[in-house]
Amino acid sequence: MSTLRLVPGTPDAVLSALSGVLDGSGTPFAPLPPDPADAARVRQAAAPDEPLEDGCAVVLTTSGSSGEPKGVLLSRDALIASATSTHDRLGGPGQWLLPMKPYFVGGLQILTRSVLAGLAPVVMGESFSAAAASMTGPRRYTAMVPTQLARYLETDLDALRSFDAIIIGGAATPPGLKARAAEAGVTAIPAYGMTETGSGCVYAGEPLVGTSIDFDDGRILIKGPTLFSGYRLRPELTAEVLRDGWFRTQDRGQLVDGRLQVIGRLDDVVISGGVNVTLPSVQARLLEHPAVADAVVLGVPDAEWGSRVVAFVVGDAGRDELRDFVAEVLPRTWAPREVVPMSALPMLASGKVDRRRLLEGVR
């Protein structure tokens, strides 16, 4: 078995280590975030002193936005399959701009695509527009999280328009944001995927070539060459989620007009006062309110209700107004019992909302 090498999570260090594993000259590695606490979690999940499972090229640690971080084993073949199928979907290889952290799968795969395309990636500095203007490739691509897209639509619209395609991942893209991008002439493609699927494997609801989608009582199942090999030193957990070649995600979904529609996580349905409440539906409705800039809805343990529905909202609307707004299209029993006003939602480095931090503030 191989040993695992820890490398700094900087673009240059990750690119160098990645180039080595892709051409067969390097050794498996795990990138370390600069934050000491995050680096400690990576060290724990990656377990560099333990023998490494066969076939692993990279160990990435999940963000732990809603649970315990895990070391995800990605093979060289999975990395290449993801990058190749992405280029095929977008219309061919191109030059990539990196505005994301390279120690998460979205950023790492931007570097993988760059290596396979033979074009140096452009690493974003303080200015998105300046980085975009420095690109020289015949086709230009980037990837970002929804919050970045929303920001750049306000501040860097011309730069956004200069890209042949922009992959949006890391979190669900609000319908209003997709509409704004389309109206502005920006080619933004929502992607669904995760570290275990080698980054996005479903673009605009359609699986990439080689990827198959199925369902088990609403649970999304994924099969294909981009899948991870397992969790680092967690064979029991691997056996739970990898069965007969299918990855059993923690998300619920359905096909609508032949396209995958992600409804939410399996744990996004809570029982409040004896009523099943689908939290993503409440959140989606709140985001339709003209005075709400951003929102996330969570279930908080409650001695009286079992779970109480709490909305964390960036905007000017008050609790009663938002409850009435939700109740116009959803059952009033689904309306949030508590609304927490915020100037901004706390985010993890991966671009996902830090749910644990929000819950700590209301318990």
Rank of each mutant, 00 (worst) to 15 (best):
S2W: 06
T3D: 15
T10K: 07
L18V: 13
P28W: 03
F29I: 08
D35L: 03
A39K: 03
R43E: 14
E50M: 08
D54A: 13
G55H: 03
V58W: 02
V59T: 10
T62P: 07
S65Y: 07
G67I: 09
E68A: 10
L73N: 06
L73D: 07
S75A: 15
L79T: 09
A83P: 04
T86P: 00
Q95N: 07
W96V: 05
P99G: 10
Y103I: 08
V105N: 08
L111W: 06
V115M: 02
A117Y: 12
G118R: 05
M124R: 15
E126N: 05
S129T: 15
A130K: 12
A132Q: 14
S134H: 11
M135I: 12
T136G: 02
P146N: 11
T155F: 03
A159V: 03
I166Y: 00
A172K: 08
G176Y: 05
L177V: 07
A179Y: 03
G185L: 09
A188V: 14
I189D: 11
G193K: 11
E196S: 07
G198F: 04
V209Y: 06
D214F: 03
T226E: 02
L227C: 10
F228L: 11
F228G: 02
P235T: 01
E240C: 12
V241P: 01
L242T: 00
D244I: 02
D244Y: 03
F247I: 04
D257Q: 12
G258W: 13
V262G: 09
L266V: 15
V270K: 05
S272T: 15
G274R: 09
V277H: 10
A291Q: 15
V292R: 09
P301M: 00
D302R: 10
A303D: 14
R308H: 11
R308D: 03
R319D: 04
E321P: 00
A327D: 00
E328Y: 01
V329H: 06
R337K: 09
E338V: 13
V340D: 04
P346Q: 03
L348A: 04
G351H: 11
D354G: 08
R355P: 05
R357A: 14
L358I: 00
